[in-house]
């Protein structure tokens, strides 16, 4: 059996009588960009939440970076999220009364200690060097998403999770964000799991898996 940064065996998540994710066996090798597609309610976000340690499985085994998440305590899980995971949401979830650089520093604060110079440099890397002191309300959707990317990568995660990060963006901004992620991945060598409805966005990945009603129905390897 091949080993990867993520290994699931019979991974299940139920909410009462509803089984959001049926026993799933999945291996994601380190450095891979995996796109997850499926219609609404197919279990994409459930899978992402489980892999990111935001939720606990009902059954099965889930190893991420060699750690069995089921055995981790709440503190251990929080430490795992802090040090191992970066997440980009569709809705950004930026703190509205903090500036772009302060939003990035907030992630540093919860990880270790804030370092403004490093936060500025991260924003410069995503092309927002001129928008450091702007609050989220003063930024466009694409710019806000780039702040989210800076915030997600600032702590050098091994695994970057994206929950429809381009869902709210126009085509131009989408291409800009995806280009940026590709560039950063080449530099930082992190693994990406990205949930999307957009076939074009999924095509940026190395592999796409399709979920339907909590079951992995198909997988497709992209051309390099």
């Amino acid at each position: 059996m091949s080993s990867g940064i993520i290994e699931t065996t019979g991974l299940t998540r139920s909410y009462g009588d509803i089984c959001a994710l049926k026993p799933l066996d999945l291996v994601v090798p380190e450095g891979e960009w995996l796109s997850v597609m499926g219609h609404s309610g197919s279990g994409k976000s459930t899978l992402l939440n489980l892999v990111g340690g935001l939720d606990r499985p009902s059954n099965g085994s889930l190893r991420v970076g060699g750690k069995e998440l089921l055995t981790l305590s709440e503190d251990g899980l929080a430490r795992f999220r802090r040090e191992f995971i970066g997440i980009i949401f569709q809705q950004h979830h930026l703190v509205p009364y903090l500036t772009a650089v302060e939003n990035v520093m907030l992630a540093q604060y919860f990880h270790s200690v804030p370092d403004e110079a490093e936060a500025r440099s991260a924003l410069e890397r995503v092309g927002l060097g001129h928008r450091l002191k702007n609050r989220p309300g003063e930024l466009s959707g694409g710019e806000q998403q780039r702040v989210c990317i800076a915030r997600a990568i600032i702590n050098s995660p091994k695994l970057l999770l994206g929950d429809e990060p381009t869902g709210n963006l126009d085509h131009k901004s989408t291409v800009m964000v995806m280009d940026l992620l590709k560039e950063l991945r080449a530099e930082e060598k992190f693994t990406i799991i990205m949930v999307t409805h957009n076939q074009e966005v999924a095509a940026w990945g190395d592999r796409t898996i399709y979920l339907d009603d909590g079951v992995l129905v198909r997988e497709e390897r992209m051309r390099s």
């Binding site: 040090e83 540093q108 990880h111 270790s112 200690v113 370092d115 490093e118 600032i154 702590n155 050098s156």
Partner: peptide, 14 residues
């Protein structure tokens, strides 16, 4: 070189 590692060391010392 890596900022996160640097900050983590500082945080541990603090």
């Amino acid at each position: 070189r890596q900022g996160a590692v640097r900050r983590k060391l500082l945080a541990a010392a603090i």
